[in-house]
């Protein structure tokens, strides 16, 4: 049965063993995220934000409960299958941009198309179009070190959206940027959400960024709450 929900989390728990003790990072999280939503997640450090993002991104398996993405129960998938899901449906944006330092902006965007086995010409065209979308086509041949922080993050956004993902997961995407650049990046994400219908889930400490989201979540001590405006 197909649902309109992109994500559906039921009684999701994640516990880690630290120094012989079990630490619960997520305690029975129930959450639904619809397609096309713009969701922000806030909360104190160590509250479970990163763990929740890892679960949503298929980077780690839950201890119990279920998490479905486009009707696929991620908790039952093998590592290889999860890799496929990530390659096809999920775009990541990181606080430190995580670009490959030896590759140009264009080649960095192309790395996201490698898993799909895109042809060289097609890959080049799509990567260039994605850079165009973030207004960086004129810097396609530049290495990350030759770009500013904001430009690097825009290359990272181009890398995330070039494969037309269902969802973009952003971990503190503006954490290392000045206010002006921060606003430009957030505007870009809002525009992608509105114009392309891409679901955006971002983790942030910055309330001004969180306020741009249609749905605000707060997570503390492993429990998620929806923040009402």
């Amino acid at each position: 049965m197909t649902t309109s929900h992109l994500y559906s989390l039921k009684d999701l728990t994640k516990t880690y063993k630290q120094k012989g003790k079990l630490v619960a990072a997520l305690k029975g999280v129930n959450l639904e995220i619809a397609r096309g939503e713009f969701v922000s997640i806030q909360g104190p450090t160590g509250g479970g934000k990163s763990t929740l993002l890892q679960m949503l991104g298929g980077l780690d398996q839950p201890t119990s409960g279920s998490i479905t993405l486009v009707d696929q129960p991620l908790e039952t998938l093998s590592e290889a299958k999860l890799t496929e899901v990530r390659a096809k449906n999920i775009g990541f944006i990181f606080q430190n941009y995580n670009l490959i330092p030896t590759l140009t902006a264009l080649e960095n965007v192309q790395t996201a198309l490698v898993p799909s086995g895109e042809g060289k010409a097609e890959s080049h065209a799509r990567a260039l179009a994605a850079l165009e979308l973030v207004s960086l086509s004129d810097r396609a041949d530049h290495l990350p070190a030759e770009l500013s922080g904001g430009q690097q993050q825009r290359v990272a956004i181009a890398r995330a959206l070039v494969k037309n993902p269902e969802v973009i997961l952003a971990d503190e995407p503006t954490g290392n940027l000045d206010e002006e650049t921060r606003d430009q990046i957030i505007e870009l994400l809002v525009a992608l959400n509105k114009e392309k219908g891409i679901t955006v889930i971002l983790v942030t400490h910055d309330s001004s960024v969180a306020n741009k989201a249609g749905k605000r979540l707060h997570i503390a001590k492993g429990n998620v709450e929806t923040v009402t405006r």
Binding site: A80, R86, A87, N96, N98
Partner: peptide, 16 residues
Amino acid sequence: TRELGTLKAIGWKTNR
């Protein structure tokens, strides 16, 4: 580590 982890996160298979 970060670079290779990022490639894995964006869908590069381990054998690649």
